[in-house]
Design a binder for these strands. Structure first.
Length: 442
RNA sequence: GUGGGCGUAGCUCAGUCGGUAGAGCUCUGGAUUGUGAUUCCAGCGGUCGUGGGUUCGAGCCCCAUCGUCCACCCCA
């Protein structure tokens, strides 16, 4: 026991906080299923070769047995750093048993070796959905993603999330139309626009990538385009760049924006500075930020990947699209700033007051019956003043206490109302039955 | 990994020029001998992150180290 206390980047919550986390995870899971996604879980580890093939320079934790033979085979494993790469491997492995287009969700922990900061962890949950097609995948799925994100996030007790939308083909075509080759480098710099501003972006494009003043300006102008309607089309065309890939991207983006008409105003916008990770995205890309809390970065993100899942020699490939919700980032931030109020720190809905030891048998009989009826029930651990017992219940947020007797009574600790109650019919009021979470301020 | 800020009670922090360690909240007990939240009283709780140095004397000054936060990098 040399190392006690927290390990940096590996959060551990108190019961009330974990209940809040489970609450969010359950809401998310239910919405994923509403949209027709099926659950899977992949193992925590993958061969290093799988992780490294698409992972760029991710910080990966390598797994090793303590008593591993010195001459053990070379196969090395690592903890997965996201859920998309393991999913790609999974699809390839089980492709003959899956139905395409395959819609799946996956809610699991992932691990990254990055340095801890607010909103940034080394062990955290990702809530991931993806759709994978065989040979072809309709652009209508590109539109389903932001709609789903909005419907999931809008019902959670968190600040409003704005989803930003872009398309890699549009950007790449535009840059190619200008004769720029190092596409991903330009993306990397344009992506910083919101953070470092227009002047420094242009400066970097010229100094680091040796773009001409004119090209740097055009890249900036493209990156500065934002709109919550279709006006971005004219703005892009006005820049006078021609390229087939750009036209294609523009058309896809338009189709997605049109489909998002069902969303309330202000919940989505086109933002041509959004690039996302530099690795496998090929078309639509998404990123969501909490309004008023943009500094912690994206709380959800994703995009289309047409080449992530390698094709069978003669067969067509498996284009996919997906998004991920960073529930640990959201929750860690809100809890760290005390922006969430949980109504209780235990699932218990009613606690039975224990007058003396002789009453324990009766208390257990009452508890048995209430639990049988699906009511989370606990018995106070020792005989004590009723005041003490009630105070204890109140501190843990338990909404009701139960007084045994010839005519049993139940008291609501929120309202102070005490009434006769029967173990066969009493129900907690709906608003007190389960944990409630409220967002304070913001 | 690189650079900067900060480490004092469980939490938030004060601590003057270097002179024996403080407050609020929390927690425990009592006022209140079976019905809570308010109020009042008392108590518990610190090797001042750690190690070294300067000094008659260090929470305070110096060095190192660890932790943490911020920026870079990258991302949920």
């Amino acid at each position: 026991m040399s190392k006690l206390g927290p390990i940096s980047g590996f959060p551990e919550w108190l019961p009330a906080q974990r209940m809040a986390e489970q609450y969010l995870l359950q809401k998310i899971q239910r919405t994923f299923e509403l949209f027709g996604f099926a659950p899977i879980e992949t193992r925590a580890i993958e061969p290093l070769s799988v992780l490294l093939s698409k992972g760029d320079d991710k910080e990966i934790y390598v797994i090793k047995r303590l008593h591993e033979d010195a001459d053990a085979p070379d196969e090395k494993w690592g903890l997965h750093f996201d859920l998309t790469v393991p999913f790609a491997r999974y699809v390839q492995e089980f492709r003959h048993q899956l139905h395409f287009p395959f819609k799946r969700y996956q809610i699991q922990k992932v691990w990254r070796g990055e340095r801890k900061q607010e909103g940034r962890y080394r062990e955290f949950y990702q809530c991931d959905i993806d759709v994978v097609g065989q040979g072809h995948l309709s652009v209508s799925y590109d539109a389903e993603m932001p709609i789903l994100l909005h419907q999931v996030l809008a019902q959670l007790p968190i600040p409003a999330v704005k989803i930003k939308l872009n398309n890699r083909k549009l950007l790449e075509g535009f840059y190619r139309g200008l004769g720029i080759e190092n596409f991903t480098q330009v993306l990397r710099i344009i992506d910083k626009l919101a953070k470092i501003g227009a002047d420094r972006v242009v400066g970097l494009l010229i100094s680091e990538l040796h773009l001409s003043d004119e090209n740097a300006q055009k890249c900036l102008l493209l990156g500065q385009i934002k709109s919550d309607d279709l006006s971005f089309i004219a703005e892009v065309e006005q820049l006078g760049v021609q390229h087939p890939l750009m036209i294609e991207g523009l058309a896809e983006l338009t189709q997605v924006m049109r489909a998002c008409d069902v969303l309330p105003p202000g919940s989505i916008e086109v933002d041509l500075s959004i690039a996302r990770g530099l690795d496998y995205y090929t078309g639509s890309v998404y990123e969501g930020v909490m309004l008023g809390h943009e500094h912690i970065g994206a709380v959800c993100s994703g995009g289309r990947y047409d080449n992530l899942i390698a094709s069978d020699h003669k067969q067509q490939g498996f284009p996919g699209i997906g998004v991920s919700i960073g529930i640990t980032r959201i929750l860690g931030y809100l809890l760290g700033r005390n922006l969430l109020q949980m109504s209780r720190s235990t699932p218990v809905a009613v606690m039975i007051i224990l007058p003396d030891e002789a009453a324990r048998t009766e208390a257990q009989r009452v508890a048995f019956r209430l639990r049988e009826r699906g009511i989370s029930t606990d018995i106070y651990h020792q005989p004590q003043n009723f005041g003490k017992q009630m105070q204890s219940a109140q501190k843990r947020g338990i909404p009701y206490v139960w007084f045994m007797g010839d005519v049993p009574q139940v008291k609501n600790l929120h309202t102070g109302i005490q009434q006769p109650a029967s173990i066969d019919t009493w129900q907690p009021e709906a608003c007190y039955e389960k944990l409630t979470i409220t967002l304070t301020r913001s």
